[in-house]
Each structure stands twice: as C-alpha cells, then as structure tokens.
C-alpha cells in the first residue's frame, strides 16, 4: 500500500508545475517547473519502493537533462518570452480537445482495468535491480552503450565547429598588425602624464596633447570621458613654464631626442 499523503503531495508537485508547460511564458520558468516535476516523480519512485530509480531520476533528469535544457536556453537567449497568441487557426482548440480526449480516454481505460495488486514485499533495491539488469537485460544494456555513442557522435556532428583557419603565432599576428598600419608600440594607459589615475582621463603625449584613443571605447560611447584639454592645461601651468613659448605644432621633443641620439649636441 502506498501512503495517501505521499500520493497527494506527489500529485500536487507534478501536475501543478507541469501546467507551466502550457501556460508559462518564459522558457526558464518552464524548465524550473519541470525540474520540480522531476523531483516530484523521484519522490513518487521512492514511495513506490524504487529508491534506486528515485536517485537515478534526480541524477539523470534534474541533474543532467534539465540542466542541458537550461544551457541550451542560455545559448539561444535566456529571456525570450513566448508570444502566447496562437498563429495556426484552430490549433488551440484541436490541441486542447485532442489532449483532453487522450487524458479522458486513458483515465477511463485505466479505470476499466481490474488489476489486483499482488501483496509481496519485494521492493526495488539496488542489488535486486542490478541482478536483473546484468542477467536478463544485459543485452539491452550493451545496446544502450551504442545508443549513447550515437548520441555523442550526433551532437558533435551538429554542434562542434573545428578550427577552420590555421592557428597563427604571435610573430605572424604582429606582422599582420604592422602591415595593416597599426601602431607598433603599446597604447598608453589612460591617465599617463595627465597626472591622474582615473580610467576616463586620456593620456597625454609628449607634447602634452591628449590621446583620445587611450580611453576605453565603451566610455567614449557612453560619453563618460573627461576632457583631455583640461588636463593639458594643468600640465602647462605647473610643469613646463616655457611651454608657452613653443607655438602649436612646432617640432616636438621627440625630434630633439632623436637628434640627441644621433649624436648631436642638444641646445
């Protein structure tokens, strides 16, 4: 005999969440409801004397299958709410009628059956299941192995993208970048020479001009950068009093250093 309380708990725990399949909008909610159903079923199995199956149910369904569903949902966009309006004419009616008919039919045929429960104490235990599994059903087990291989191969064929372009070394990457006209040296960090360590302050070049691209593009798009000119002014004020004398666009200090390196005497 089965505990009545257990039955009603299981019934509530399975039927109510499973209705989410029909009425909930967000797939994630549905998946979580189905997880509940699976747990409910696991409880039912334990109550029906199949503890091994109960555990397997939790491990396989809630642990693996439903999590896989959730993963795929995340891949395809986790918060897509479904528009519940029916697009196929009459489908809603047909669906409810057919499914309802199926339910009524099944319940009535089950009700019609006259099955006397045999009162035996044999309940499922892992040892008993294992005994039968590996004697009577050993062939099925082996075929299941092939089935799992097939599933794995299938999943790989349909989802695995191998490397299609050859992997490039750092040297090649660098060469390609230079060929494309990129700056060979590192970009300055934001705030360099600007006497500021905030991310939104552009670095200053040796002339003291702000380098706008040293600030993250994200900030730029959000218009959250500071004005570089402002920090330039600070520089002029404090550090380089004779800077004023140099007109805009005059030979930079860069040129000076190069000359120096070339061996000429600085002024």
């Amino acid at each position: 005999m089965v505990s009545e309380v257990l039955f009603w708990i299981v019934a509530a725990l399975t039927v109510i969440p499973s209705l989410a399949l029909l009425f909930a909008k967000r797939p994630v909610h549905i998946a979580m409801s189905i997880v509940l159903v699976m747990v409910g079923l696991a409880a039912a199995y334990v109550g029906l004397g199949a503890p091994f199956l109960g555990v397997v149910q939790i491990v396989v369904y809630t642990g693996a299958v439903m999590m896989m569903f959730l993963f795929v949902m995340m891949l395809v966009g986790v918060d897509n709410a479904e528009d519940m309006r029916e697009t196929i004419k009459g489908q809603k009616w047909i669906g409810f009628l057919a499914a309802g008919g199926l339910g009524i039919l099944l319940i009535s045929v089950i009700g019609d059956a006259s099955i006397e429960p045999r009162l035996t104490d044999t309940v499922g235990n892992p040892e008993g299941v294992a005994m039968i599994l590996f004697s009577e059903y050993v062939l099925v087990m082996e075929v299941l192995g092939f089935l799992l291989i097939t599933a794995a191969v299938g999943a790989l064929v349909l989802t695995h993208v191998p490397r299609l372009t050859p992997r490039r070394t750092q040297v090649e990457l660098q060469a390609a970048r230079v060929l494309a006209g990129a700056n060979p040296v590192n970009k300055p960090m934001p705030g360099v020479y600007a006497r500021h360590n905030a991310l939104d302050v552009p670095a200053l070049d040796p002339q003291g001009q702000p380098i706008e691209e040293s600030v993250s593009r994200v900030l730029e798009i959000r218009r959250q950068t500071q004005d570089g000119q402002e920090f330039r002014a600070q520089l002029e004020d404090t550090d380089n009093p004779d800077h004023e004398a140099r007109p805009h666009g005059a030979p930079s200090r860069d040129a000076d250093t190069r000359n120096t390196r070339d061996g000429e005497e600085p002024k």
Partner: peptide
C-alpha cells in the same frame, strides 16, 4: 495519464 496528456498538449500548443 494526466501528465502524459499535459505533455502531449505542450507539443501541440
């Protein structure tokens, strides 16, 4: 039986 019918309805709807 009820769960089976609900599942079937989900496929259709």
């Amino acid at each position: 039986a009820i769960l089976f019918a609900i599942g079937a309805a989900a496929v259709l709807l």
